[in-house]
Write a protein that binds this DNA or RNA. Structure first.
Lengths: 121, 121
DNA sequence: GGTATATATTGACAACCATCGATATACTCG
DNA sequence: CGAGTATATCGATGGTTGTCAATATATACC
């Protein structure tokens, strides 16, 4: 229930801080959400997720490499971050490694972020 | 329209990369979205937005200071980032500065991010 | 003017992040 | 085994970010 302040009515010299506003989320919760946003907040990772989402099944690293404008070690680095975030998984087949998106995890993350965004707007 | 790869049918020694997967978003678009996610991806900024969203009208800096576990210069720093991102605005009244959320901008940002998230999950 | 308060800015520092060349590891084929 | 390929890891580097003490700026009141 938002309140509207009546600032003009306040006497000069009073304290301004009369609403005692507190966040509804603890700092720990805010930190967790911020971490999840950071996991997405990189153009290479967004493009990798884009490709993996649109290619049902498995995509090999060399395809992913071709899809983004950075070199192979950097692709490996971002794939590792996404794997550690639980958003993708990999499987080795012969000399290749195929990645695939974990749809359930991705959907759950999307929903957490959408919840967050719903809180302000 | 996602495709399922038939990896088991491929002869060993063939190239793995036969799908020529391309992202649907340009690197520039991905960068823009990543930037917007980064603007949110910080616990202090999330808490500040939380308070500002829940207090219709204006909230003074000292209230915001009380709501987050960092010192005054750091609060000022994050308020500046949010202001530069176009998500909040401020107004000086006497010796105090009141901040308020820009609901239209916040809603537009939310919608852009939700569009993005819809793309994978 | 002088003192007090609210907020912003500056400057320094540590931590973190993205990138890449070089190298390591693991696999395939001959 | 040796040569070639795919991917991961290491190590270095440059850039960015978060934080705070100190200081500056603006305002209010006496």
């Amino acid at each position: 229930m938002p309140r509207t302040l009546e600032i003009v009515d306040r006497q000069l010299g009073e304290r301004c801080c009369d609403i005692n506003a507190r966040p509804t989320r603890s700092y720990a919760e805010a930190t967790k959400l911020a971490t999840e946003l950071e996991q997405l907040a990189n153009p290479v990772r967004l493009q990798l997720l884009d490709v993996l989402t649109r290619n049902e099944g498995r995509v090999c690293v060399c395809d992913l490499e071709a899809a983004v404008p950075v070199k192979q070690p950097t692709v490996s680095h971002h794939l590792r971050l996404l794997r550690e975030a639980g958003l993708i998984e990999s499987e080795k087949v012969g000399q290749w490694v195929y990645y695939r998106i974990k749809r359930d995890e991705a959907r759950a993350l999307r929903e957490r972020i959408q919840n967050l965004l719903g809180a302000f707007a």
